[in-house]
Structure formats: structure tokens, C-alpha cells
Amino acid sequence: MSEQNGHAHTIVGPGVYVAILFALLAGTVLTVWASFVDLGFWNPIIALAIATTKATLVLLYFMHVKYSTKLTKLAIAGGVFLFLTLVSMTLADYISRAWGSW
């Protein structure tokens, strides 16, 4: 019970949701458009950056993380960190099996 949050349960209103909806739709249009432009090396990076932005918006507002307890935020951060560990440390093996020719 010691984690009980002092502030009351925050109710997010429709205004915020509509704004996020339009931001997400705009992001979708942007990322499709960007994929048709040849940016070489930057293409996948931009695609992932836009996807991450969209995901963050969903997390923060639709999933109310912005208004959640520190515990929830910490748990999510820990999970994302471990997800990245799985990906990056596995890739560390594959990348270094043959330097440069990856």
C-alpha cells in the first residue's frame, strides 16, 4: 500500500484523444510519404523514428502513462531496456562475426 498514489485517478478528456488521433494519422501519412523518397541510409531510421514517436504518443495519452505512477513508468522503462538488450546483444554477435561485411 505504500505505493498508493496521492493524486486522484486522472480522467483524460476527448479533446486530448482527438488531438492524438490526428497526430497519429499525420504520422502515418508522413511515414508512407517518406518511404517513397530515396534517403538511402536514413530511410529505415526515419521510418523507425516516426513509428517510435507514434508509439510514444499512444503510450503517453491513450494508455495514460503520462498520468501514471512512477512505478508504472519505471516498469515500462525497464521492459523497453530489456527489449533493447535482447535485440542489441544478439545483434552484437552477428555484427562482430564479420566486421564490415554486414
Binding site: M89, A92, D93, Y94, I95, S96, R97
Partner: peptide, 10 residues
């Protein structure tokens, strides 16, 4: 057969 470098890390 993992790379020697990542073996060092692990």
C-alpha cells in the same frame, strides 16, 4: 560459433 568479440563481452 558466435563471434569472438561478443564472446569476450559475454
Amino acid at each position: 560459433g558466435i563471434s569472438t568479440y561478443s564472446a569476450l563481452l559475454f
